[in-house]
Amino acid sequence: MTEPQVPRFAGWRAIFRGHALPTAGLVGMGLFLALALLAPAIAPQNPYDQMQLNIMDGLLPPMTQTMDGRIAYLGTDSLGRDILSAVLYGLRISLLVAVVAVAAGITAGVLLGLVSALRGGWIDALVMRAVDLTVSFPGVLLAIMLLAIFGTGVDKVIVALAIGIWAQTARVVRAVALTEMQRDYIAAARLGGISEWRIMLHFLLPNSITPVLVLLPMAISGAIVAEATLSFLGVGVPITQPSLGLLIANGNEYLLSGKWWISMIPGLVLVAMVLCVNVVADRMRDHANPFLRAKD
């Protein structure tokens, strides 16, 4: 009998050593996070302070000088708002929404998946039917429908995205937990009279969490894209808190007249950020896939 291939989280070094692209992705993720956190400190202007905007600076292409002598490195929009500043602030909103939604969705999913596996019976049936109901709709459509019902807003977008995430997580965790429960260490714990609650937290949770960790970056990039899509469609974040998706939508009308930078630049930033997360996600998934590891 050979040791079963249990995916174990081997640590960052083992996953990323010798893989240049994913390492670059990891660095990029850190960079975007830093930019988002430091936006108020490094942005040339506060793009939502009307006092700082000058309508005379409107629609400047990148690298032009503004009225007050600064250089608008990435150009300005129709209101004379500096695109670089708008992008830095937009990054904050995009990341905030994605991270909070993923954290909320995954926490709920893990707990419900574990409880469902451990208790079985009607709790399991109820949770799984709710999962079926949720996952039978693609995430973006589900979110559009929810937002159509509840209206828009940062908090509502977060809830709508989290609803798409919890169900996937719960399904994965439940499946893993059910196989783990067949393993003898759970039987040994039961024989030792350990309470169900402790079995769930100390035995089942740490052994069922790996697939969730592996899927985490993918969930985050998915949430970033979903939020951008919703905001682009006008059912996401409000105009007072524009994310990258909303900035792209605002520039949309100028695209056909050749003023590409207003929507292309936030778009490029969005793509770069998602790409960084996805190369990391790919690497983590490949690493966790036992079929791709060197095999005897």
């Binding site: 009998m1 040791e3 079963p4 174990r8 740490p206």
Partner: peptide, 8 residues
């Protein structure tokens, strides 16, 4: 291989 909790 399955009788011990791998995380303890």
């Amino acid at each position: 291989y399955s009788s011990l909790n791998p995380r303890m």
